[in-house]
Amino acid sequence: MIAFLIKRVVQAIIVMFVISLVSFSIQDNLGDPLRELVGQSVSEAERQELRDEMGLNDPFLVQYARFAKNALQGDLGTSYFFKEPALEVILKKLPATLELVLGATLIIMLLSVPLGVYSAIKPYSLFSRAVMGFSIIGISVPVFLTAIGLIYLFSIELGWMPSFGRGETTQILGFWGSGFFTADGLAHLVLPCISLASIMLPLFIRLIRAEMMEVLQSEYVKFAWAKGLSPRRIYFLHALKNTMLPVITVGGVQIGTMVAYTILTETVFQWPGMGFLFLEAVNRVDTPLIVAYLIVVGAIFVVTNTLVDLIYGLVNPTVKLAGKK
């Protein structure tokens, strides 16, 4: 287990290193920090001097080492547009995005397990067919169209739900502006969370159904039936446990994917989160902000993936043997 753990952590560090290298080369090639600093009016000689002084003429690796050192200390440069440390700007938007992901994850978990299990237990019932039909339609609708559809129906036609922004937020723990504690904040969360969930929900229903059906065919479940255990016990205790194993791995990867899809939902709903900020930064060629976003999101990906691998290793003892696969 220890070897497995170390292996995973080392891999995570390597990936983080590659991400930082990529981010740095973006920073190196995109835009001119000097022009952002001094504008157009400074003479060429003075520019060269400044370049030397700032170390912009140093070899790539020297510059990268400096970048990495600063990054480790939490300094990712200053946003050209906001004139504030880029990392701070990003982290200020982090709660909005995380709450979106959290809300969507809740919807997915609460719906996918019962629906998936039901359609595995009774694959030919009318309801299961309806669920499967819904899920294939769900997979085929791009997330931004779901979002637009929801806005059109509930905000424009019916006028029930707000169509953009986060609404009223409350500060908790001093820095986390949360929309979970006011009615207005919750109302603003509903549509974005549903549209974000819509992309993953069908996937999870299908995955849980497929896994559950496979598990139900296995010997140990047949044995449990033969022992005369109650159906509820077999389904929800014996079978469901093993069904959830692959769901954990896929789930971990999908959380990362959801962070990517927040860019789409945030754009449609003008949700003031990291994704929306990132697209704005791209349009303004605000390089430090782009780089900070890459590093923060990269870290989220790496951390969730490593955690998921470790949890998987804990719940599934066979992984220990197959540490190298």
Binding site: V253, G256, T257, A260, I263, G298, F301
Partner: peptide, 12 residues
């Protein structure tokens, strides 16, 4: 590693 970063993210 490539799969752990979603396609959408990389593409964007």
């Amino acid at each position: 590693v490539q799969l752990s970063f979603s396609t959408m993210m990389v593409a964007i």
